[in-house]
């Protein structure tokens, strides 16, 4: 009894202060993966059954809307490609490095942390798919979070709304650099240390600034919804609504940024060379 207690305490301390135990955790996670998958079955089935009962007409109109969206997006992508090429030509003239398109991998949520205070989810891609710790996660609307631990087939993601998470952002209208911190509520982020005189107002779009080398530049993070100037406080109180549907998205995108890809390619080259 005492031995096991001491062992547990040692494990807790080692796990908290270092990453020696990550491999053990990854191995044990494979053991509990069936539990994660089993817990996801009821929700999955409910969605499939509701799809089964939707009528033919509903499906048809749904497909029609999707086709329209697809055409629209294709046109936009084509224009985007031209703009990227032009942008790279201009960057070339300025002598700065060309910007590549970020690669993405589609993943699906399989579990959500049952503790309402912890905003963590588990996705169905792991180190076998090349996922790495710190990898940014997006949904169709914006930034969702980052990978914090890996297993072979799954990985755990910390959402930007968790109280312990902060994202470096900038206001896209004025390029004002700020830090957006999670509040523990899925529909609110808080901007830290905003000067009372700063040019920021409700409706401003916040995009990731890329500072800190964790998140890629320019992905939408949120929209400012409240700016409050309190004379009794040194900073203004500014909150934002996250762009990503943090509590609803099931299909998410893992981003492989250009530097990471370059580094991976280098490792592979060195590995095959040596």
């Amino acid at each position: 009894m005492v031995g096991f207690c001491v062992l547990s305490f040692v494990l807790i301390v080692v796990d908290h202060l270092s990453d020696y135990l990550d491999d053990i955790r990854a191995g044990l996670t494979i053991l509990v993966t069936p539990v994660l998958v089993a817990a996801d079955i009821p929700g999955r089935e409910a969605r499939e059954i509701s799809e089964m009962f939707s009528s033919r007409d509903e499906m048809r109109s749904h497909i029609k809307i999707l086709e329209q969206d697809l055409t629209l997006l294709k046109a936009k992508t084509a224009k985007m490609a031209a703009l990227t090429a032009e942008n790279n030509r201009l960057r070339d003239l300025l002598g700065s490095a060309a910007k590549l398109q970020d690669n993405v991998l589609v993943a699906e949520l399989i579990s959500v942390d049952p503790d309402p205070e912890k905003h963590e989810v588990v996705i169905d891609k792991g180190s076998a798919d090349g996922v790495f710790v710190g990898q940014p996660l997006l949904d169709a609307q914006g930034l969702m979070g980052q990978v914090i631990s890996l297993s072979f087939f799954t990985s755990r993601v910390l959402l930007i709304s968790d109280r312990s998470h902060s994202v470096p952002v900038q206001v896209s209208r004025t390029n004002l650099r700020l830090i957006a911190q999670g509040t523990g509520v899925t529909n609110r982020l808080e901007l830290m240390h905003v000067q009372d005189t700063a040019d920021i107002r409700p409706g401003d779009l916040l995009v990731s600034s890329g500072l800190g080398n964790r998140f890629p530049v320019g992905y939408p993070v949120g929209i400012v919804d409240r700016v409050e100037h309190d004379p009794g406080r040194p900073f203004a109180v500014v909150t934002a609504i996250p762009s990503a549907a943090l509590d609803r998205s099931r299909h998410v995108l893992l981003v492989f940024t250009e530097e990471k890809l370059a580094r991976a390619a280098e490792v592979r080259r060195n590995g095959s060379g040596g």
Binding site: S8, L11, R25, L28, T29, L31, V32, I148, R156
Partner: peptide, 17 residues
């Protein structure tokens, strides 16, 4: 307890103890 720690992503040993 160890399996639960892995399942919930808590510190390894926390639920165990």
């Amino acid at each position: 307890g160890l399996l639960v720690d892995v399942l919930l992503g808590s510190l390894l040993g926390q639920h165990a103890i």
